[in-house]
Design a protein around this nucleic acid. Structure first.
Lengths: 142, 142
DNA sequence: GTCACTTTGCAATCCGGTTGCAGTGACGGA
DNA sequence: TCCGTCACTGCAACCGGATTGCAAAGTGAC
């Protein structure tokens, strides 16, 4: 899914490409860090909050993007860069939330360690988010 | 910290024991699953929401309890059952949020796998939450 | 008892998320 | 081409969890 036009990506995921969906996915593909709905709202000033909200939900349902909660209180979204249309849990990377600057980082190099759960539990997704200080903030503090 | 009276536990963490703090910590120590502020509010009907809120913050600051976000949208709280007053990241267990019944489970047996981060990142805490179906709900579905 | 400080309850507020509804646009069939 | 249908979008209102301001009540030191 990493190549092709945004429009193509949408279709690959079975999503009817509309102006709003292209814009949102476009923006998410440009960004290198996860963003909240509010951030998207300011990035895409022409688009209404509810449209962004519903667009994100469509993208989520079709697994074109991921969402997760860092400790900031608002849900963060990022584009799914999996090669296939299905993204396996073990391929997902972890995130880091800096309590100093309130930014959320993708640690692309580090994949989520998948644990063995007791019988009966069915894993759908895993959120692995580390809180602490990013290199910039820990350096400044020291 | 697993033994002694609630009052003693508070003092061990350097918290001045008040009625509200004892009640909240008492309740959290009785419960076997993490709860939201709203749930605490109904459990402790005599106590005001804002008091609970501030009490939880005091307990958090002094590491008497932990908080984390499952996927439910509200923050969950649980008592810290560490033996010492400092609770190490690697001692913490993972959580499971069931999308079927919207309950949050402690998987006490499974500790959070701690990853190696790139240079400069300082780990303060880790949230490892699995989403999916609990044994009850996955069984019912099948 | 008095003063200073902490704790608590009430009410109001904030804000991210969500929904109802009406207007607009795309598409297929007559 | 016109019409009906359905998906999509924007606006405004709403909801609920989280947070704050303020005044009253409680607590401890003297």
């Amino acid at each position: 899914m990493a190549n092709g036009t945004i429009e193509q990506q949408l279709q690959d995921h079975g999503i009817h490409p509309t102006a709003a969906r292209i814009l949102v996915l476009q923006k998410l593909s440009e960004l290198t860090h996860p963003v909240s709905m509010t951030e998207l709202e300011t990035e895409l000033e022409t688009m209404d909050k509810s449209t962004i909200f519903r667009t994100l939900n469509v993208l989520l349902e079709h697994h074109a993007i991921h969402s997760f909660e860092d400790g900031s209180g608002s849900v963060k979204y990022e584009i799914c860069r999996c090669e296939s249309t299905v993204c396996r849990v073990e391929n997902r990377h972890i995130h880091f939330y800096c309590e100093g600057c309130n930014r959320t980082f993708c640690i692309d190099d580090v994949k989520i360690p998948v644990v063995e759960l007791p019988d009966g539990y069915e894993i759908e997704s895993i959120n692995y988010t580390v809180k602490g200080l990013c290199p910039e903030c820990s350096g400044r503090k020291a």
